[in-house]
């Protein structure tokens, strides 16, 4: 979908200071470029619920964090989402890998396709589905809209 350099460049342009991540096979390939960019610090956590809370702490401290996880990790994140986005109303943005959206051969019948978007809707997360490499601008625009209005959001990256 996107190269690591494209993503690292976008994050730099948007002023993101920290990316908190548990990788998957797509977004994990961006790690090296993000680390080498020098402008964004990668923070590795052990499970995705942790990522939202680390982002919460970064936001409270005045940094500009972004969560980068797979949709399976979104499912894991439930109580952290509830607390960070709805109890404390912290405007954390996420890039979420959408497993099996483009390639259903590897995991036929992958239930990620059944649950990912309904779960995002259930948590009232305003997201944009990114299915083409031409849509980097959509991520940029949505991020800026969310940032400027002080609300959480996500870009859902088809994999």
């Amino acid at each position: 979908m996107f190269s690591g350099e494209q993503v690292a460049g976008l994050l730099k342009e948007l002023g993101v200071t920290h990316v908190i991540t548990v990788p998957d096979s797509t977004i994990g390939r961006w790690e090296a470029a993000i680390e080498q960019s020098g402008s964004v610090r990668l923070v590795r956590v052990c499970r995705e619920g942790e990522a939202w809370q680390v982002a919460a702490g970064l936001h409270l401290g005045g940094a500009t964090p972004l969560v980068m996880i797979q949709c399976t990790g979104l499912f894991e994140s439930g109580d952290a989402l509830r607390n960070v986005l709805h109890d404390w109303k912290l405007p954390v943005f996420a890039i979420i890998g959408y497993r099996s959206y483009l390639d259903q051969a590897k995991l036929p019948g992958d239930t990620c396709l059944v649950f990912t978007e309904p779960v995002l809707d259930a948590w009232r997360i305003d997201y944009r589905l990114i299915t083409s490499p031409s849509q980097l601008d959509v991520i940029r625009g949505h991020y800026l809209d969310c940032r400027d209005s002080g609300r959480a959001g996500a870009a859902l990256i088809a994999e």
């Binding site: 680390v54 702490g57 970064l58």
Partner: peptide, 23 residues
């Protein structure tokens, strides 16, 4: 002080990590 109420149980250490990185 951050009185972490309401919380997501167990996540105080993670919020602390984020704050420690930011500041």
């Amino acid at each position: 002080d951050i009185i972490l109420v309401p919380s997501s149980m167990g996540h105080g250490t993670s919020i602390g990590l984020g704050l420690a990185l930011a500041r």
